[in-house]
């Protein structure tokens, strides 16, 4: 069971994620879209989308920090007050995101226009995210100071997976909400390329630096202009 969830699943998920994502971006670029439904409904989207997105983005950045600079997180948490501050804001963001997510789920299920353009995968993604946020919040509430033990257990585990020297035994003794959170992440990773989640990879940071106007020339005309 342990090997299945924390050894087979991660590698299957990562393989799917990489292979299918690459295939989809290369061969099916038309399908890559955030599939916004703001045109159809905007009030509830406002109350759902903004809290959910900003909450999740900030939390994910927190997780990433713990993965990349665990020492820094431990150093920060060495003072109890700072530790409480970190945990408190993390939990608050998660709660904010969860509320937004539930609004989005409610919106998708109840607004006739949005329902009309929803696919099964849209609901799968929303439900998986609910599980993820709920298990994360549970962990934060019941197994206090994750920012400290994350560096001791999760960071080595994730790096062991990424460096192809898997140590699934690290997670054997973890409580089940934590195990659920980890397994849920890999399930999300596995479905990622099959869903609208691919829009995360298209975050258009290039917009900050590109010129305002874009002019495209046909090949021959471009060659002529270059020769000039």
């Amino acid at each position: 069971m342990n090997a299945l969830l924390f050894l087979a699943l991660p590698y299957a998920a990562i393989s799917l994620f990489v292979a299918v994502t690459v295939y989809r971006f290369r061969e099916r670029p038309f399908t890559v879209s955030s599939l916004s439904s703001q045109l159809l409904e905007r009030k509830r989207l406002y109350w759902g989308s903004i809290p959910f997105h900003w909450g999740v983005v900030l939390i994910l950045l927190g997780h990433l920090t713990a993965l990349l600079v665990p020492r820094g997180v431990i150093w920060w948490g060495a003072v109890p007050l700072r530790s409480w501050l970190l945990e408190g804001s993390g939990a608050a963001l998660a709660l904010w995101a969860l509320v937004g997510l539930l609004v989005l789920l409610w919106r998708r299920a109840s607004d006739p226009r949005v329902r009309a353009v929803s696919t099964g995968m849209d609901y799968v993604v929303l439900l998986l995210l609910v599980v993820q946020l709920a298990s994360g919040l549970w962990t934060a509430a019941s197994y206090r100071f994750g920012s400290m033990w994350f560096a001791g257990v999760m960071t080595p585990y994730l790096w062991s997976i990424l460096t192809l020297r898997p140590r699934p035994e690290l997670l054997v003794d973890m409580a089940w909400p934590i195990q659920l959170h980890v397994a849920g992440f890999f399930v999300l990773l596995a479905v990622f390329p099959f869903t609208r989640l691919v829009h995360i990879l298209t975050l258009p940071l290039g917009y900050l630096v590109r010129p305002w106007q874009i002019v495209v020339w046909p090949r021959r005309a471009r060659a002529l202009r270059r020769r000039r």
Partner: peptide
Amino acid sequence: VAACPSGAIYKRG
């Protein structure tokens, strides 16, 4: 064109 974050819109030269 200027507002598109993805740079998907363009003017043909």
